[in-house]
Simulated scan of single mutants.
Amino acid sequence: MLYRVEGIVIRSMDYGESNKIVTLLTNSSGKAGVLVKGAKKVKSRFGSLAQPFTYGEFVFFRGPNGGLGSLNAGEIYESYHTLRENLDQAAYASYVAELTDRALQEDEAGGFLFEQLKACLNGYVLGKDPQIVTHLYEMRILEAAGYAPGLDACVNCGNPEGPFRISAHMGGALCIRCSAGDPGAIRLSDPAYKLLRLFRRMDLRRLGSIEVKPETKAELKLAMRKLMDEQLGLKLKSQSFLDQLDKLT
């Protein structure tokens, strides 16, 4: 069967002497693995389509039983080459790409998430705060995987009155009384908690200019890391590299 999809390359790996296998996040077919023959050759007409983060149209054939597709044609809409050339941007883009690939099964990756990933990459290119953009996308990943945190009321007793603490183990907010049952629950400042609730609801395509104080960003990073580690439990190479970059800044 012939597929014609919009897709973003979230993983690219060598296959044999001259080929590459790419994993796409598509707008209509979830995740898809596609063989790009001759992609490593200097004069390959498909070489650019196999580059990480490339957004474009991909036409590929895949058998009736699914599995790996084979690229027939394609067109680049946005190469996102600056994301491969700038170290900081490359680190964040690599993280969200690996996160998407590792966190989601094919049927969990719908068209909305495709649009969110595209908005995330656009945000990096436009110079928006990469940490904030990334946290927003992490929320979309948690949502797509079925682990979105409950933040409007206590996830244990339903009490809507704060203040709350964030429990990664319980998957959301705990009121003061219930938080006694989770020593690992963290207390956030009011600005950090309000932003976390905003992240839970916000479409990345609507993100404008935003400035967040360093101390608030530190709180958000701690909360999101705990939620991601507890709910998804992934060890990502790109995350380790991001952490190393943070230590240098």
Rank of each mutant, 00 (worst) to 15 (best):
M1F: 04
L2M: 13
Y3W: 10
R4G: 03
R4M: 01
V5S: 05
V9K: 05
I10L: 11
I10M: 09
R11I: 01
S12D: 02
S12V: 01
D14K: 06
E17R: 04
E17Q: 05
K20E: 02
I21Q: 03
T26H: 01
N27R: 11
S28D: 15
S28R: 14
G30Q: 13
K31A: 03
G38P: 02
A39E: 03
S44N: 06
R45F: 02
R45G: 02
R45P: 03
F46V: 00
G47L: 02
S48G: 15
S48N: 07
L49C: 00
A50P: 10
Q51P: 01
P52L: 07
F53Y: 15
F53P: 10
T54C: 06
E57P: 00
F58D: 00
F61I: 01
F61D: 01
G63V: 04
G63Q: 13
P64M: 03
G67T: 02
L68V: 00
A73G: 06
Y77H: 12
Y77L: 15
Y77C: 00
Y77W: 12
H81S: 14
L83W: 11
R84G: 15
E85N: 13
L87A: 13
Q89K: 14
A90F: 15
Y92P: 05
Y92S: 02
A97D: 02
E98A: 04
L99V: 11
T100Q: 03
D101Y: 12
Q105C: 08
E108D: 07
A109L: 04
F112L: 14
F114W: 09
Q116W: 09
L117Y: 05
K118I: 00
A119R: 03
A119G: 07
V125E: 15
L126I: 02
D129I: 12
D129F: 09
D129T: 10
D129K: 12
P130Y: 07
P130V: 05
I132S: 09
E138N: 12
L142N: 08
A145P: 05
G146W: 13
G146I: 11
A148V: 13
P149E: 07
P149F: 07
D152E: 15
C154E: 09
V155F: 07
N156S: 15
N159S: 09
E161A: 14
G162P: 12
F164G: 10
I166P: 08
I166C: 05
H169A: 09
H169M: 04
M170P: 00
G172F: 04
G172R: 05
L174M: 08
L174H: 09
I176H: 07
R177L: 11
A180P: 00
D182C: 08
P183S: 08
I186D: 06
I186L: 15
I186P: 08
R187S: 13
D190T: 14
A192R: 07
A192D: 03
Y193S: 12
L195H: 11
R197E: 09
L198E: 11
F199W: 10
F199V: 07
R201T: 09
D203K: 08
R205E: 13
L207V: 14
L207H: 04
L207Y: 02
S209N: 10
S209E: 15
S209Y: 11
P214G: 13
P214N: 09
P214W: 08
P214F: 11
A218S: 14
E219L: 10
K221W: 01
K221C: 05
K221I: 01
A223H: 04
M224G: 03
L227C: 02
M228Q: 08
L232I: 05
L234Q: 14
Q239G: 06
Q244M: 06
